[in-house]
Design a protein around this nucleic acid. Structure first.
Lengths: 152, 152
DNA sequence: TTCCTTCAGGAGTTTTTTGTCCGAATTATA
DNA sequence: TATAATTCGGACAAAAAACTCCTGAAGGAA
């Protein structure tokens, strides 16, 4: 309804990494398994997050990915601007190239406050807090894998 | 950010048809030109809206598409359930198959009220009202075509 | 050094979405 | 009846998104 798969994977992975001990690199393979997501695809996404400065990567034994120092306070909006592109917040719901208060589509004034709520929400959610929420055990980062179901 | 191109075209076309005299079929070609949208693709979408009972179609001379009787009160939610599929309202923002108050993803309780606002908004917007808004001339249904710009 | 493990990066494949083309069916009108 | 205008429906094509595979480079440890 709102986010591309790429964005979903990116957010899930970042939250997961944020739940792990800082300074201890997490393997792409482990993240993929934990989130039940294609590993090779996830690797591309993590690579891109590295280039954009959210993650640090290390090769070889004891390698993996860490949140870059200070990036625990990263907001989901910052992530989405990378994964969905810089126009994420600007788009008209009907797809018009130009749609503003002056040149509005018929949905504009109803959509605008809702869109602002989405933006505020994304600006308000930080990796750190989401990670803590997951650590309480009350929230799920991924669907239960088939392996976790009771044996038949 | 939220809707597929197909949904956008469908909504635009339905609003446009709703602005036209009822009972006077509107040509696919004219709608496409007015909205600046690929005609052959739009035709498929209109066909589908016919099958789902929102439109009536007429072939041959004086043919075209009309809103089916009574369908002026159709809500955007009804349209979106056709174009985006029946799970439109149900999806988890992180893509989890199961995500409810009991089995929540870490974004669930922040996202839920926002999603409900979107749903309420879509349930509240009717073709008739949107068409009237467009008829006032204050709102645009499509970007200005290059042809409408002042000659160079 | 040598081996093993991990990420880097490029090329390629598959799937989905978006868009095109064309012939057939239908209908008003000359 | 013949013609022109329109939708219908299926097959096809292109573009974008999601996903895979392979080779190479880097780093740690025996």
């Amino acid at each position: 309804m709102v986010l591309s798969r790429t964005s979903q994977y990116a957010i899930q992975a970042l939250i997961y990494i944020a739940t792990q001990a800082p300074g201890e690199p997490v393997l792409n393979r482990d993240i993929a398994e934990r989130l039940n997501v294609p590993a090779a695809y996830l690797a591309k996404i993590l690579q891109s997050l590295c280039k954009h400065g959210l993650l640090d990567s290390f090769r070889g034994r004891l390698g993996g990915f860490c949140l870059r120092e200070g990036m625990h306070r990263t907001t989901l909006m910052q992530v989405l601007l990378l994964t969905e592109g810089p126009d994420f917040t600007k788009s008209c719901i009907l797809g018009l190239k130009e749609c503003s208060d002056e040149t509005a589509c018929p949905m504009h004034f109803k959509w605008k406050p809702v869109k602002n709520k989405i933006i505020a929400m994304m600006n308000d959610m930080h990796l750190e807090d989401l990670a803590k929420a997951v650590q309480t055990g009350k929230y799920r980062l991924a669907d239960l894998p088939a392996a976790a179901l009771p044996a038949a």
